[in-house]
């Protein structure tokens, strides 16, 4: 069997090119891999379109300012929205000092020994623990052992443990961007470790740390499973008034509505999702803007 003679063509520069099966395979590969990249993004657009289309009849200001109800058309997300806001503020208040503190310890103080390696390995593994396991920990530790009950405080503490690895990793990255010369300059001027950190290093990488914190909050805001596990209520007709008060949150309210068979409640779920996505995407956009401004500010 003889191979067919190759087709010879001239390209734009007039150079002879042999058209072969190889070129065809290459083009198939590029096409397939581009499709593999574009298809998931297309699916994401379909998802956004589907949710937004479903939600349209319920997207009203009333929806934000009403309490949940047995009548789907009157039900709103006020307690869930307030609950989520409270959770986020509390979670941030707990995660930020601990997460940044741990990052500072690992980057600035820890010697290269077994203990710091253990902490690093441990944090990497914690980042991979399924979120529902944190729910089980929160249930036994915060709800039962510390007797905080099924409260806002227990919910925020659980979420805080969940996003701690994200804040630690991001803060370490931020600390690593500060050049050694800046640190040494501070020490040379007589600053101790603490003074150098609090006056020079941390203020310099604060925007970077803040980016990590915002991304962590964007993750925490959508977490449902751990809050269900610690027993957050799915039907709340009042606003939380203290740290110990029972609560619900946006994703839980959405889950509650999705779980009902009636399609009117599915409409409510879609509207709740739109609110959730708007808040989450806003947080992400702020983080990206912050990162871009940061890259412009310090040029070494």
């Amino acid at each position: 069997m003889s191979t067919p003679p190759p087709r010879v063509e001239r390209d734009a520069l007039g150079i002879e090119r042999v058209k072969s099966r190889r070129d065809l395979f290459d083009r198939i590969l590029i096409g397939t891999s581009l499709a593999a990249l574009v298809l998931p993004l297309f699916a994401l657009l379909v998802l956004f379109g589907d949710v937004f289309g479903d939600a349209l009849p319920r997207l009203h200001w009333d929806f934000l300012s009403s309490y949940p109800s047995r009548h789907a058309a009157q039900a709103g997300i006020l307690p869930a929205f307030v609950g989520t806001l409270c959770l986020m503020v509390l979670t941030a208040a707990m995660t930020v000092p601990i997460g940044i503190g741990a990052a500072i310890y690992l980057e600035e103080y820890a010697k290269q020994n077994w203990f710091s390696r253990l902490i690093e390995l441990n944090i990497a593994n914690l980042a991979g623990v399924p979120s529902i396991i944190y729910g089980l920990l929160g249930l036994e530790l915060f709800v039962r052992a510390l007797e905080w009950g099924r409260s806002l405080l227990a919910g925020a503490a659980t979420l805080s443990l969940l996003v701690l690895p994200i804040v630690i990793l991001a803060s370490r990255e931020a600390l690593r961007t500060v050049p050694a010369s800046v640190r040494e300059a501070a020490w040379a001027l007589g600053a101790g470790r603490w003074a150098a950190l609090s006056r020079v290093i941390v203020p310099m990488c604060l925007p970077g740390m803040l980016t990590g914190v915002i991304l962590a909050m964007a993750r925490a805001i959508g977490e449902t499973a751990p809050l269900i596990t610690i027993g957050a209520l799915t039907y709340v007709a009042f606003l939380p008034d203290s740290l110990n008060s029972p609560f619900t949150a946006l994703p839980i309210q959405v889950f509650n509505w999705v779980s009902r068979p009636q399609s009117e409640f599915h409409t409510n779920a879609a509207a709740g999702i739109v609110v959730l996505l708007v808040v989450m995407l806003t947080l992400n956009a702020v983080a990206i803007r912050l990162r871009m401004r940061l890259q412009k500010r310090y040029q070494w």
């Binding site: 993004l41 949710v51 959405v254 889950f255 959730l276």
Partner: peptide, 24 residues
């Protein structure tokens, strides 16, 4: 451009995916 766009997929809350699977 494409890398951050792909990251959005990972950031969407999982209840949203649940809703999408069940109703769409």
């Amino acid at each position: 451009l494409l890398k951050p766009a792909l990251e959005v997929l990972a950031g969407v809350p999982t209840v949203v995916y649940g809703y999408f699977a069940l109703t769409f």
